[in-house]
């Protein structure tokens, strides 16, 4: 394989990094390369070894950013909490309205049921009333 072909594999091969740095690299320069011919190339090519080392250094530095925190503007926390409070209030109003709607519909349904029951009862009594003898 040629360097320019191997170079295409190096960004992904850099994932083979082991925590604690590059200690294993001196013994196995091509670690992380799945392609056997690419691995063999790297084992004998100082330039590609150097490039792989730089990719691993890049990844270590990127991992290091995880511990950094960029300080937000002072008002951000208050803004977030205000947004959440507004959302909470909207949610409460919505559930209140939903609750009232349910009560309203329930009331109508109950009244209608009561009315129907009354009508049936009335009709039944009328039918059962004995004829005057």
């Amino acid at each position: 394989m040629r360097c320019d072909e191997v170079a295409e594999l190096l960004p992904a091969a850099a994932d083979g990094i082991v925590p604690g740095g590059l200690r294993g690299l001196a013994h196995s320069p091509g670690v992380g390369l799945e392609d056997r011919s690419a691995r063999r190339h790297v084992e004998h090519c100082v330039r590609c070894q150097a490039e792989l080392v730089q990719y691993r250094r890049l990844l270590r530095t990127l991992h290091g950013l995880r511990t950094e925190v960029l300080e937000p503007a002072p008002g951000l926390l208050a803004d977030i909490l205000a947004t959440l409070e507004a959302a909470g209030e909207r949610q409460a109003v919505r559930s209140l309205l939903t609750g009232r709607r349910v009560a309203y519909v329930g009331g109508i349904a109950a009244a209608a049921t009561a009315g129907a029951a009354g009508a049936i009862l009335l009709a039944t009594r009328t039918r059962r009333r004995p004829l005057a003898s």
Partner: peptide, 20 residues
């Protein structure tokens, strides 16, 4: 971490076509 012969530098082509 630019390497010798990276794009923009002279001699790039020769270095990148080293075959093993």
């Amino acid at each position: 971490f630019p390497l010798p012969g990276e794009p923009g530098e002279p001699g790039d082509h020769e270095e990148r076509t080293h075959a093993m």
